[in-house]
Design a binder for these strands. Structure first.
Ligand SMILES: [Mn+2]
Ligand SMILES: [Mn+2]
Ligand SMILES: [Mn+2]
Ligand SMILES: [Mn+2]
Lengths: 219, 219
DNA sequence: AATATTTTTTAGATTAACCTAAAAATTTAA
DNA sequence: TTAAATTTTTAGGTTAATCTAAAAAATATT
């Protein structure tokens, strides 16, 4: 069954929201992510349900069906492979690739995706540390913690970010934070939950709780 | 001004048709190339004229404006660079890349296109021998002849094809014809204008006039 | 339990791109 | 130079995706 870019984007958004919770996803939550109105979402959810890609009953929220999940994962796979391609092969910075990958993720060719995968050496993660689903849609489970959850005096390693936005990634770059950075937490300030941390053994600096929540680390 | 995929495809088609003639392009010619109806073309031509991308007066046919020409060339540039990328870097055959490039040509990022160009070593031609417009939209002029125009007992070299269709390219591959092949024309048959030709010094074979018209050669 | 608030859906329009059928203009042929 | 054939445009609809405003349902508060 033919699928439009818009439908693909809805499935991707429902997928992303579903990763954070077991509950059904609300119309409003989808509307916010899609940057559209709740009324438009209602229309689309009915359509997606008709096509068998979501389970939806009015006023009850929405979930992906197994088919919908498969489609969503294939889009995520393409997005992340293209992002890595742009960084590894085309020399972009990690803060420049998300918007281009938003376009490339809709290119339709299984053969191309699999060749791209091979060309990149069957990578496990994208430039932001996010796991890349394999050919069969299986996501390598990476158990990372938010930097904001780590206790004082612990050491950890930056493994990923919870956000791809340019402003956030550029801030990290400014702070000399990139994938693989070693983080020594000196102190956590009770007042604003900001963290005093040494990056790659440099002189320690302050990082806000808001930023720390979006940094994923491995102990 | 925002441009849709459909509008881009119309400009590309008008550009292609304009390469073959000085005359204004007819509504019907555009309709045939776009695989749509003349009535739809009329609608779109008025819209493209409003946007300043074509010069169009009803019943008089259409031509690209300078701006329209620039847009068309940038799409052709992207199409051909992506085709080369698919062949050179991803290991596709020359008969497999056109349809994927039809999608990739609409990806919007000047930076990406220029990096792709650099990554491929600023190539002059695509996998079918078609010239690639440079950053400034300048097309290297390649003066090739159709194989059907070459006289008997002449030798020439296959430099390009006038068609990207899978069926045609697969036929050439079957005939052991690819870019750079050496062609010795033994004889031209008056009856059907078929050509008896030796490819890379192998035993000569017959090639139809229809095929020969779509093969571009240099003496 | 009744009322107020919030969320979600329905109703009715709009826009881009397309369609068919009919009318108008242009071109070709008698 | 009229008539016939062809090409092109107009008229009137359709579909996908969106919107605003209003109605309905669900949830929260008194
Ligand atoms: Mn991204
Ligand atoms: Mn990413
Ligand atoms: Mn092509
Ligand atoms: Mn080509």
């Amino acid at each position: 069954m033919a699928i439009s870019f818009t439908e693909e984007n809805y499935l991707k958004v429902i997928h992303r929201l579903s990763e954070a919770t077991q509950e059904d996803i609300s119309t409003n939550a989808v509307a916010e992510q899609m940057q559209t109105k709740a009324a438009s979402v209602t229309d689309m959810l009915r359509k997606l349900a008709d096509k068998g890609w979501v389970n939806y009953q009015k006023y009850q929220g929405v979930r992906l069906s197994p088919t919908g999940e498969k489609i969503a994962l294939s889009i995520v796979r393409k997005h992340r492979l293209w992002e890595l391609f742009l960084v590894e092969k085309m020399g972009f910075n990690w803060d420049e690739v998300h918007d281009i990958a938003e376009q490339l993720e809709h290119i339709e060719s299984d053969e191309l995706v699999n060749k791209l995968d091979e060309y990149l050496g069957f990578p496990k993660t994208d430039p932001h540390g996010d796991p890349i689903p394999n050919k069969d849609g299986i996501l390598p489970e990476l158990a990372y913690s938010q930097l904001s959850e780590i206790k004082a005096n612990k050491t950890c390693k930056l493994m990923g970010v919870a956000q791809d936005s340019t402003v956030f990634l550029q801030l990290l770059t400014k702070l000399n934070l990139s994938l693989g950075a070693k983080l020594d937490i000196q102190e956590i300030n009770e007042f604003d939950r900001s963290i005093f941390v040494s990056i790659n053994d440099a002189a320690p600096i302050f990082i806000s709780h808001e930023v720390a929540k979006n940094i994923l680390v491995k102990s």
